[in-house]
Write a protein that binds this DNA or RNA. Structure first.
Ligand SMILES: Nc1ccn([C@H]2C[C@H](O)[C@@H](COP(=O)(O)OP(=O)(O)OP(=O)(O)O)O2)c(=O)n1
Ligand SMILES: [Mg+2]
Ligand SMILES: [Mg+2]
Length: 493
DNA sequence: ATCCTCCCCTAC
DNA sequence: TAAGGTAGGGGAGGAT
């Protein structure tokens, strides 16, 4: 608590006057727009086309178009839709089936091939062997991100996350389609219906990807079983999936990648070492850019090379858990269990695109939208939260210096408030959020992103909500107990 | 030792 | 034009 507070304080001390002024200042009165809603104003801060400036319903509309929001919120929709299938099955730890002791586990990992592209190409089968991507923009100078590229496109080096202009530079003939989130949702439903029909231990990784634990299915052949499932998926969805079969989740996942597209791969225990020997360490799940660079700096590239490094040395360089992971994964060891259900620890929403505030009113309007979003997500999950975290309120500190340096990295500021009672009430959340934001004392014109996260979650049915309805606490009471959490104290005015 | 806070990292 | 969200794991370093 102390640390984050220091940050707020420090910022205020370094730029106190202009910031205080900007908070007190409403819209400039000399442009004739005073009193108009911001989205009708023309101002110098409206330098993005679609932004909080010209859309009073920005959060909702933005989320409707955001692929990352679609991916990020998919799990909640899945858990609701498949709650029947998920309830009865335990948390994966409860008991060890006898066959896993005698012959080890059998895990299938299954993942749709170039998912977003496959879904749209159902309507354009002629393009199946042409380079195709899904992206918001088809502008060959655009900076929209490629979401998914099919395998012909990947031959040109096109990858998810690339700017469309770079993808077009790789392949002049790249065909770009827009998103169709409803269709992805539908296909994902069909995909999971099939998986749950065939297996009772399904761990959903994402809308196009899952682990199946078939250890208990003694009398089936894993490869035929996997084939059968893939066949049913392609017949039902008209999209192909690839699968990996192995003795643990790690090897099954790596097997899938090697089998793509539209294939499957079984890695028996005796083939594990050979499979890993030349595999780049960066292909291991959990090893991304940062750890990959560290390893590269040590001239470590393949899993085979990594095996030469002692566990002690890995602990020293990467910490205990990451060190253990590297040591185990490069040997093909992985003792994670397929887990059907995991309880959420936090629920939040954030926007870091198109955020442009002219004045404090815009900011508050935006915070109300975010609060509504989070409140309704808490309700959907049947969960109440005690901690409000107005986090990652990005802004360019002291604009000029930073921007001229070309440093696009925004700085963060955040503060936490703890409620005396867990809540999902939108009015209460709004109130607290507004207070926290007011305490930031930042120039709202510099804000480029806002996030609201709630944690310390409690399941609704375990909570004695009926006995203590929110209305039995006055807002004043709640606010004073939040103040005791002393994140507002130093700025109380 | 263990926990907590404030981050960074990773994956889709 | 363009939609850079979401959630969990875990490390460093300090508090207990
Ligand atoms: N950076 C990313 C990664 C993924 N996705 C979306 C689009 C993908 O179609 C979907 C599934 O992600 P995958 O990692 O499974 O990628 P694909 O299914 O597209 O390709 P692959 O055949 O490698 O699985 O998630 C995205 O929008 N942005
Ligand atoms: Mg996929
Ligand atoms: Mg996937």
């Amino acid at each position: 608590m102390g640390k984050s507070w220091d940050k707020v304080k420090k910022y205020e001390a370094s730029d106190a006057d202009s910031l205080k002024l900007s908070i007190r200042t409403t819209a400039p009165s000399d442009d004739g727009s005073f009193g108009k809603p911001t989205y009708l104003k023309q101002t110098a801060n409206s330098d993005v086309h679609h932004s909080t400036f010209n859309d009073p319903n920005f959060v909702e509309n933005y989320f409707k178009s955001s692929r990352l929001h679609f991916i990020g919120t998919w799990r909640n929709r899945y858990q609701k839709r498949f709650s029947n299938m998920l309830k009865g099955v335990g948390y994966g730890k409860e008991f060890v089936h006898s066959s896993s002791i005698t012959k080890g586990s059998t895990i299938i990992h299954i993942d749709m091939d170039c998912f977003f592209v496959s879904v749209i190409l159902r309507k354009y089968p002629d393009l199946l062997n042409e380079p195709v991507a899904v992206c918001h923009s088809d502008n060959s100078r655009g900076t929209a991100e490629i979401s998914s590229a099919n395998y012909p496109a990947r031959e040109y080096g096109i990858r998810a996350g690339m700017f469309v202009r770079d993808a077009k530079a790789c392949c002049h003939n790249l065909v770009v389609f827009p998103y169709d989130f409803e269709a992805y949702e539908e296909v994902a439903d069909q995909f999971y219906s099939i998986l749950h029909k065939h297996c009772n231990k399904v761990q959903a990784v994402s809308c196009d990807e899952a682990f199946l634990d078939i250890t208990e299915y003694d009398d089936i052949n894993p490869e035929s079983f996997s084939s059968l499932i893939r066949k049913e998926i392609v017949e039902t969805t008209k999209c192909t999936a690839s699968a990996g079969i192995a003795g643990n989740m790690l090897m099954a996942r790596l097997a899938t990648k090697s089998a793509k597209p539209n294939g499957q791969c079984f890695i028996p225990p005796e083939k594990v070492d050979g499979f890993l020997e030349e595999l780049p360490i960066t292909s291991l799940p959990g090893i991304g850019h940062s750890i990959g660079e560290k390893l590269k700096a040590k001239e470590l590239h393949t899993c085979g090379q990594l095996r030469m490094v002692s566990k002690v040395a890995l602990h020293k360089d990467f910490g205990e858990r990451v060190g253990d992971m590297l040591w185990s994964y490069c040997r093909g060891f992985d003792d994670r269990k397929v887990e059907v259900l995991k309880e959420a620890k936090s629920i939040g929403a954030e926007v870091n695109w198109g955020v442009r505030f002219q004045d404090i009113m815009d900011c508050e309007h935006f915070l109300i939208q975010l609060s509504k979003e989070v409140s309704s997500r808490l309700k959907e999950c049947g969960v109440l939260a005690r901690t409000v975290n107005l986090k990652k309120s990005y802004f360019y500190a002291n604009s000029d210096k930073r921007r001229r340096k070309g440093a696009k990295e925004p700085e963060n500021i955040w503060a936490v408030g703890t409620l005396p009672v867990p809540t999902d009430d939108v009015a209460l959340i709004q109130r607290i959020v507004k207070q926290i934001f007011a305490s930031f004392h930042i120039n709202v014109r510099e804000v480029r992103g806002v996030g609201l996260q709630m944690s310390r979650l409690e399941r609704m049915e375990l909570n004695r909500r009926a006995a203590f309805p929110l209305s039995s606490f006055s807002l004043k009471e709640l606010e004073s107990s939040i103040l005791q959490d002393h994140f507002l104290e130093p700025f109380s005015h």
